[in-house]
Amino acid sequence: MIRARVHVSLKKSVFDPQGRTIHEALGSLGYAAVADVRAGKFFDLQLETADAAAAKAMAEEMARRVLSNPVIESFTVELLS
């Protein structure tokens, strides 16, 4: 079993209304050092394989086809443990 973590966030070119709102909230709490906030999400996939390369390829395919929308989002895949 291999655990793959897929991070999905809005592309840099895309305005992130959620990130902006969180940024403003942090600022109003006095965290003046926060220069920017980008919100995103992650998915932990438990994959029934022992082959790390296959796990990564599988996770990338799922991230591309389902977990992200390439029009607005980008993703990264990392294998955990």
Binding site: L10, V14, F15, P17, Q18, T21, N69, V71, I72
Partner: peptide, 10 residues
């Protein structure tokens, strides 16, 4: 074409 983002006012 295109995709929808959260409304700008959230």
């Amino acid at each position: 074409p295109g995709a929808m983002l959260r409304n700008r006012g959230v």
